[in-house]
Structures are given as C-alpha cells and as structure tokens.
Nucleic acid binder design. Structure first.
Length: 261
DNA sequence: ATGGCGTACACCGTACGA
C-alpha cells in the first residue's frame, strides 16, 4: 500500500504534472497542499477521471488541501483541526482503505511562520499546539494513522543544506523542532528516517539562486506513521524528478510504502 | 545585499512563500 504527499504550489498550474505523476505512481492515497483553489474551482472531474476519489478543503489564492484515494473515502471526513478556530484551509483527514485495510490519513499544510517573533510565527505555534491536542485523540480513536504533508519544519540539522546559515531561522528554530519532537512523542515515527537515506536529501528547493541544481534545500515535507503502522513501513522516498519539470513545484513528492507483514 | 523566483490578483505593483 503506497501513500504520498505533495505540495503542488497551485493545483491550477500543476494539475497536468499531478496527473502525469499519478499515472507513473499508482498510489493508494495522496494528499496535496497549496492547491490555492476555492472548492468551486477544484478539478474534481479530472482527478476522478484518473481513477481517484477526492475530498478537498480550499480557499482562494492561499493554502488549500486535498485527499485522493483509490477506494471510497470513508465517513468522518475532517476539514481543519476540530475545535480550533482557523480561517485558513490547512488540514484534511479521512479513512482510506487499501491492501492493508483501513488507515486514517491526515494531510496537513503547516503554517510557514515567516520569522521567529512575528505574528505569523505565533499563529504557527498556536496551530501546532492545537494539532498536537487533537492528534492525541485522533490516535486513540485510529491507532493505524498517517500524518503527512508540508510541515514547514526541518527536524534536524541534517535536514538543512546549510545548518549554519539557517540556524535559528524559520523552519529551524528550537521551538519548531520541539513541536516536531512532541508529535513523535505521541507515538509517531518519521518514516523517512526509518531507513538509511542518501546524505543531503531534501524535499524543497528555493526557486531562486539555482538552488535545485546546486542541491541546496530543506527536508520539510514529512510522513509520520503511528506505532501500529511502523512495523509495516517497507520504504520511504523523496521523488526529486518532478522538480526537474518545466514550471515545477518547489516541493517534491514524498512516498511511503506499507507492506502486509 | 531582505535581493534572487514563482504564484495569485489585480491592474502593470503587491502579498506571500520558505
């Protein structure tokens, strides 16, 4: 059973690339971030024609998330963090059924945070607090759970191309990293780090300064699996190829494979 | 060096991302 996450940075622009990617990588479920589309503009028919059920939670211009699934999307679809007031469309959750049975899938676009000390940073911290509180309940209700998306947090220095330059900067602050560790402490595991990985593995490269060609990036897109799913994780990879497309997203897809064992 | 690039919206510049 394969699951994937991709920050597409505008689904209106990236839809053809998404459809190409899905044709080459027939995943069981996928979450998207930064669709940047209100729900009335969402390309539901095109995605259904590609063989996926889809749920979405969007807004005009900014943010926006979607959940694609080969099988029907079970009930208890959640849009945004329950009991957390938020006018930004950043989270979608549902239960997907694949070869491994039912898995609770949460797709999230974590706030950027702009800069430590800013209002947007405070918003990010409050959002992370709310996510943590809700996840505790969600994990109790759904032990087989995957949280994936654009976390906008580089968990460790090895997730940063230049840790000295990025020290204390947004995505790399102690506060953000403590929040990431708090998520792990709930009983979640960074699927990518369950395996030996190539050094200098990133999921995002700045559009500027030839960052991709120089492989200067950050690993900020993650797939966390619950204790119950951890024994099933067979592989986790970042697919750099779409970053080489014309008009690429600045993020790469991340894929996890869950085996039956 | 707060630049660089890309997207959206609006209107030919500004906000935002990471």
């Amino acid at each position: 059973m394969k699951l994937a996450t991709w920050n597409v940075n505008s689904l209106a622009v990236r839809l053809p690339q998404l459809l190409d990617w899905l044709a080459a990588h027939p995943v069981d479920a996928m979450v998207l971030q930064e669709t940047k589309l209100s729900d009335d503009k969402f390309p539901q028919a095109e995605i259904e024609a590609a063989g996926y059920h889809v749920a979405f939670h969007g807004q005009k211009t900014y943010n926006g998330v979607a959940l694609l699934s080969r099988g029907t999307l079970a009930e208890r679809l959640v849009k945004n963090i329950p009991n957390h007031d938020d006018d930004q469309a950043r989270l979608i959750a549902g239960t997907v059924t694949g070869p491994l049975g039912a898995v609770r899938v949460i797709g999230a676009y974590f706030p950027n945070g702009q800069a430590p000390g800013s209002e947007k940073f405070a918003y990010k911290m409050a959002w992370l607090d709310a996510l943590q509180g809700w996840l505790r309940e969600e994990l109790a209700a759904h032990p087989r759970l995957v949280l994936m998306g654009d976390f906008n947090i580089a968990p460790e220095d090895r997730d940063v191309h230049d840790p000295v330059a990025w020290a204390g900067q947004i995505h790399c602050t102690d506060e953000e990293r403590a929040h990431f560790r708090a998520l792990l402490a709930l009983g979640l595991h960074d699927a990518f780090r369950l395996f030996e990985q190539p050094p200098r593995s990133w999921s995002w490269w700045d559009y500027r300064n030839l960052a991709f060609r120089k492989n200067q990036g950050l690993r900020i897109d993650h797939i966390l699996v619950s204790d119950a799913l951890k024994p099933h994780v067979a592989a986790c990879t970042i697919d750099k190829l779409p970053r080489k497309n014309e008009r690429p997203s600045d993020h790469a897809p991340v894929v996890v494979e869950l085996a039956d064992r």
